[in-house]
Nucleic acid binder design. Structure first.
Length: 563
RNA sequence: GCCCUCGUAGCUCAGUGGAUAGAGCAGCCGCCUUCUAAGCGGCCGGUCGCAGGUUCGAUCCCUGCCGAGGGCGCCA
């Protein structure tokens, strides 16, 4: 996986990493530590937040990593770096400790936390967004359901996961294009046209046709001129009506996606890839490279050259191109638009097609590492512990719109965001629908609303947040805890973008809400008798609001000011 | 048969070479005269599928086995 080039806005973790790196180098210069021998691997400085708060705010295993190459006990190495940190790291750390078997445990000072809070508040909506000197230009193709019917719950996960990924990458400073690929010609579309034609004529829908209320709606909506064109002499009614209907259906799909808050930058038609010659040129490119041959009357791509199980057909023996042919052309078309990286979001059932596509990209001279497929696992929609039937005949819960009607956009986004994309999971409709504490999304939104309520209360009392955080924490461990959690946001975004996954973001949101609720319990914010303390606490609570707002915003989830 | 993914608390899922494995839900017990109880505190609950191996250290990496799902088309 290629790492984004983005660098974090000042995160506390990054500050700790730099401080340790600097101290380590200083210890080498002073002779306290030997340099890493040339034949050994120089370890990277890893900094994490220890699970146990008694281990401090930040911890590093650097000394243990260095023990072998330096041939010294890890505790001695840690002590050397700690000594350097204590003398030259300024006022960033309140304490620097060494713990067995060689951990370096750091505790941040109030001053460091307060400065970071000031920066966060100034950044405002930009807090938690990273910048990049050279943003990676990435194309994310997802959903890409053919316009023969409304989006189904089967399409839902791809739609949410794709958009969530895009949001995370954007927050990490990357240049993201959301792309939807659709088949606007061929058999499926003709079947749709035939179905519409049949209903329009009052005949039954053909065997391989499409059913459902939307088809009837389409039939009754056919404009007179389209119908005339379809039924004129020599016209192919199915094709004409199919073309018209697929555009209508596509707009329907677009409206559903709009409802989820997903908007695509590019809608790419398969036909255009053929019409503009992308497919034939790509096949020619493969042929020139010796990767194409004819057999059994068909044209094949020699995918086995790159380790595939078998070679793959590009043109069938009847001359028609396969879907794979269009994929090949599409890859060249995408790279011609200057993307550094292509991401495809597919269902696990497409896993078998990854190899041939990646191989074709490689055969055409593209770096296969820049062709990435993320698979999304199956979802079972569960109610009362049993799977909800999704059969069209049952009439319930077939479309994506049904799902949104049942649980709402916020809950749907949360549930899809909080699971790793590639694993199968059960979507509990009851829990997602619950307007109560059972529902984690409300739990987090409630924290936000609660803060807004405090802010309103404060305004009534004439209390304004402190203009600077300097001196506001004042050794208060409860306040420090909230500040640390707030300030983790940039790290959470960095990690999410690197992992190309969002479940760390929902976990962070839940944790932040929990820490805030604890603060609310332990510290009264608005106290007219003590305006100075109130102003300090109000500023901190407002910073928590900022972090919650930006986190939920990142997930596309609303932030109500009262509930 | 071959390939991919998964197997962690009763349920749904995180975690991932490090310091006592986490969250939500469910269950049980407490807390509203004071900024929103959609909240807070506590309890219960795990041989991290099984067996080997690598490592100072493995739930995480490697091998084998067992179980679940998916893929192996001139379908998409």
């Amino acid at each position: 996986m290629t790492q984004p080039t983005s660098h974090a806005a000042p995160s506390l973790r990054a500050a700790g990493r730099i401080a340790i790196e600097t101290a380590w180098q200083a210890a080498i210069r002073s002779g306290a530590l030997p340099p890493v021998p040339p034949d050994a691997v120089v370890p990277t400085v890893e900094v994490e937040h220890p699970a146990d708060p008694s281990h401090g705010d930040l911890a590093s295993n650097l000394a243990m990593k260095l023990a072998r190459p330096l041939r010294r006990p890890p505790l001695a190495i840690a002590e050397a770096i700690a000594t350097e940190l204590r003398t030259s790291a300024g006022d960033i750390f309140a304490s620097v400790e060494v713990a067995a078997p060689g951990f370096l445990n750091l505790r941040l000072s109030d001053a460091a936390l307060e400065r970071a809070l000031d920066v966060a508040r100034t950044a405002d909506a930009g807090f938690g967004r990273l910048t990049s000197d050279q943003p990676r230009k990435v194309d994310v193709e997802f959903v890409s359901a053919n316009p023969t019917g409304p989006l189904t719950v089967g399409n839902a996960r791809g739609a949410f996961v794709g958009d969530l990924l895009c949001r995370v990458l954007e927050a990490a400073g990357q240049d993201v294009t959301r792309e939807y690929y659709f088949n606007d010609s061929g058999a499926q579309i003709e079947h749709l046209g035939a179905s519409v034609a049949a209903l329009k004529r009052g005949e039954p829908v053909p065997e391989d046709g499409y059913h459902g209320a939307y088809v009837e709606q389409l039939a009754s909506d056919v404009p007179a001129d389209v119908w005339a064109a379809a039924t004129s002499d020599g016209a192919e009614a199915d094709k004409v009506l199919g073309a018209w209907a697929s555009v209508r259906v596509r707009h329907m799909i677009e409206a559903s996606l709009e409802r989820l808050g997903v908007r695509f930058d590019v809608w790419k038609s398969e036909a255009s890839l053929h019409d503009e010659g992308w497919v034939s040129r790509a096949v020619e490119r493969l042929r020139e490279g010796g990767h194409v041959y004819e057999a059994d009357g068909a044209t094949w791509f020699r995918s086995t050259t790159f380790g595939d199980d078998k070679d793959r057909v590009i043109h069938r023996s009847d001359g028609r191109p396969t879907y794979f042919a269009a994929d090949i052309g599409y890859v060249t078309e995408k790279f011609s638009r200057g993307f550094d990286h292509l991401i495809y979001i597919w269902g696990v059932d497409h896993h078998g097609t990854i190899a041939r596509n990646k191989n074709a990209a490689q055969a055409m001279g593209f770096d296969p590492d820049h062709y990435e497929v993320l698979l999304v696992g199956w979802v079972r929609f569960v109610m009362d512990g049993v799977e909800v039937s999704m059969s069209k005949r049952a009439g319930t819960f077939v479309t994506l719109d049904d799902l949104l009607d049942a649980v709402g956009v916020d809950a749907a986004r949360w549930f899809f965001a909080s699971r790793a994309a590639h694993v199968a999971f059960d979507f509990d409709i009851e829990q997602a629908r619950a307007q109560s504490a059972d529902n984690p999304v409300y739990y987090v939104q409630y924290a936000h609303a609660r803060i807004c309520s405090i802010l309103r209360k404060a305004a009534e009392a004439g209390i304004v947040p402190a203009s600077t955080f300097t001196g506001t924490l004042d050794g208060d461990t409860v306040a420090q805890g909230l500040a640390r959690e707030v300030l983790r946001l940039p790290e959470v975004v960095e990690d999410a973008a690197a992992a190309q996954a969002t479940h760390g973001v929902t976990a962070y949101a839940t944790g932040l809400a929990t820490v805030f609720h604890g603060y609310y319990r332990d510290r009264r914010v608005v106290d007219p008798a003590d305006p100075a303390t109130s102003a300090a606490r109000l500023a901190l609570v407002d910073a928590a609001r900022l972090a919650l707002r930006n986190t939920l915003g990142l997930l596309g989830i609303s932030t109500p000011e009262q509930m």
